[in-house]
């Protein structure tokens, strides 16, 4: 989780990812941020987040994204 927060904060240092829970709903992250986060996550966690996973519920918080990563790792 800490590694994920570090990745997200590296892309958007102005957001506190430890507390934010409506990153998409509140328009805090835009599509450019999302693809950058996905790129980093795929690389660092060795998973493959695809277009179908780009749902608000998967990106609204660091916790939700972490759950998605765990799910993808288990599927592999």
């Amino acid at each position: 989780m800490d590694q994920l927060i570090e990745i997200m904060s590296g892309i958007r240092p102005d957001i506190d990812f430890t507390t934010a829970t409506a990153l998409i709903d509140d328009d805090l992250l835009d599509s450019f941020d999302i693809i950058a986060i996905v790129g980093e996550v795929n690389y660092k966690f060795d998973v493959e987040i695809n277009v179908n996973d780009l749902l608000p519920e998967n990106f609204n918080s660091a916790g939700a994204l972490y759950e998605l990563i765990k799910k993808l790792q288990e599927e592999d």
Binding site: F32, V38, G39, N42, Y43, N50, L54
Partner: peptide, 27 residues
């Protein structure tokens, strides 16, 4: 936008840029 940004080529470019110039330039 999403399929292109998440394509293997885009990742290769981003990965190359990340190593050379950091995460912001890669983005």
């Amino acid at each position: 936008f999403y399929p292109l940004s998440m394509s293997p080529l885009a990742y290769k470019i981003a990965s190359f840029a990340r190593k050379r110039w950091g995460i912001k330039t890669a983005k």
